[in-house]
Every structure is written in C-alpha cells, then in structure tokens.
Simulated scan of single mutants.
Amino acid sequence: MMTNLFSSFDPSTNIWSLNWISTTMILIMIPSSFWLIPSRYYILWSKILTTLHKEFKILLGPKSPGSSLIFLSLFSMIIFNNFMGLFPYIFTSTSHLVFTLTLALPLWLSFMIYGWINNTIHMLAHLVPQGTPPALMPFMVCIETISNIIRPGTLAVRLAANLIAGHLLLTLLGNTGNMMAMYLLSLLMFTQLMLIILESAVAIIQSYVFAVLSTLYSSEVI
C-alpha cells in the first residue's frame, strides 16, 4: 500500500528488493552481440551462416523474391538435433520419419502450391526436359511427375536412414565389448572413435544436403 506520494520512488518499498532490476532490463532488449565480446563459437557460427547465406542466394537466383532465412533456420535446427543425438541417452529426433517428413512435406507442398498457382506454364515446362523427342514426351511427363512427387519422401528418408545406419553400427559394436578379449578392446575403442568422427561428419553433411535440396526445389518454382 502506498504510504505517501513519493513512496514509489523509494527502492526499499519492495520486500524482495527487485526495484533496481528495471535498470538492467534494457540488456534483455539489446542483442548480446552489441554488448558482449563475441566468443569463438559465435564467430564460427556467424561465418558458417554467412557462407551458407551467400550460397543459398546464388541457388535461389536473382529473380527469387524469397529469403534464405528459412533454409538457414532449417539447417541450424537439423544440425543441432543431429549432434544432440550423438550424446549418450539423448533421443535422436532426426532419425525418425515423423520428424523429417514434418519438415520436408509442408515445405515441398508450399513450393508446389505456389508454383502451380503463380507460374503454371513454367511448372508445365519443367515436366518435359529441353530437347526431348516428341515420341518420348508422354513418358517423360510421367517420369518427371513421379520424381517430383517422391521428393519429400527422399528428403525425409535420406536424413533418417543415414542417421539410423550410423547409430545402429555404433550400438552393435558397443554391445560386443563385454564379450571381447582385452587385447581387442583397444581396437574396438579406436573403431568407435573413428565412427564417432564419421557420424559427426554425417550430421553436418546431411543437414547441409537437406537445406541445399530444399533451396533447389524452391528455385525451380520461380
């Protein structure tokens, strides 16, 4: 309860002594890059995203009205989940089709709807490659249509299958450790270490491939 007119200016009126927090709340609103010295992780991640942004803009083309932000976000989310799955007892969400199809299917569907509504002639021209003989045109239309329809499935299965294969191999080799002789354990540990390095590379490559293919699919509808 206010005792006098100036009690709201008294810092001791709050029992929790939180009145001075309002002075530092501005730091929440200012991006940390303006008031913190960038760490090596921040600099590395900024360089990666800047390089990917330039590459995605080239793939999208100069006529593209879209932004590469959605594909950078897609890359960041997939690579984060891929690396989290390499730690023990952490669920690898990107190894399940429920997760990968949820990313690929709406993205591909939105590209198709946008392309067929706004650039119908351009989309029809994509069904017949340039230089196709007239006799082969009906077959090429069927082949191109099927290859276009299975794109979200191939995106999702490629990501999930590569992660499942590596994790299964690590698990199978790890379960044989208690049945091996002592002199073979060092060989097993070296093999596991090499597989971990390989899986780290797969985590980066698969997230990059998913983002690049999504960018290429979007550039075809413009």
Rank of each mutant, 00 (worst) to 15 (best):
A181K: 10
N14R: 11
I113S: 00
G61P: 04
S64C: 05
M179K: 11
A104R: 02
L49P: 03
I90T: 10
W108H: 10
F6D: 10
N19M: 06
A165S: 14
I205Q: 14
S33F: 15
F91W: 12
W20P: 05
P11W: 04
G153E: 01
L107P: 03
A135Q: 12
L44H: 12
S147D: 11
Y217I: 02
P133S: 10
T50K: 15
T215F: 06
M137G: 07
I43G: 03
S17H: 14
F56H: 11
N14K: 05
T92M: 03
M84H: 07
N178F: 11
N82W: 01
F91C: 02
N4W: 05
A181G: 15
M140V: 08
L60I: 05
L103M: 11
T92D: 12
A125Y: 04
Y41P: 03
A156Y: 06
S68F: 02
I149F: 12
L52I: 06
L18F: 05
I197C: 03
N178M: 10
F34Y: 14
S12R: 09
M182C: 04
H96K: 11
M194L: 15
C142M: 13
I204R: 07
I28F: 10
S33H: 13
A203N: 00
N162M: 10
A125I: 04
L188F: 07
N81V: 04
I43F: 01
L193Y: 09
R40P: 00
S214H: 10
I204H: 00
A104H: 08
P38E: 04
L103K: 06
A156D: 02
G177K: 12
M84Q: 11
G131E: 04
